[in-house]
């Protein structure tokens, strides 16, 4: 088992700064939090994204697919920030 330390990825969208803190184990997301000064409505939906990303293979396509899926399901609106911006932030944490 190879557990990585928690690493931070920072990405700036037009709507704000997105900081991802990610730990992986054998290429799977073990733990993740996302913070920043972006806007996302309804706010609680971000926790749904975070919960859903735990246990997921840490690759761009999979992350993007899940985030888009929750955007649709929860009717998320995030002016100036897109699902790709969250993916980008998480990928930056993975690439550190």
């Amino acid at each position: 088992m190879e557990t990585s330390k928690t690493r931070q990825g920072i990405h700036k969208s037009r709507g704000g700064l997105i900081r991802s803190f990610v730990a992986t184990e054998n290429g799977i997301i073990k733990d993740i939090t996302i913070s920043g000064d972006f806007f996302l409505l309804p706010e609680e939906a971000l926790f749904k994204i975070i919960e859903r990303l735990k246990g997921v293979p840490a690759n761009r396509e999979k992350l993007q697919e899940i985030i888009e899926e929750i955007y649709e399901k929860e009717n998320i609106q995030s002016p100036g920030t897109t699902p790709s911006d969250f993916t980008e932030s998480i990928m930056k944490a993975l690439e550190v």
Partner: peptide, 9 residues
Amino acid sequence: LGFFQKADV
């Protein structure tokens, strides 16, 4: 703080 921010960060 904004809703999504972390105080210690």
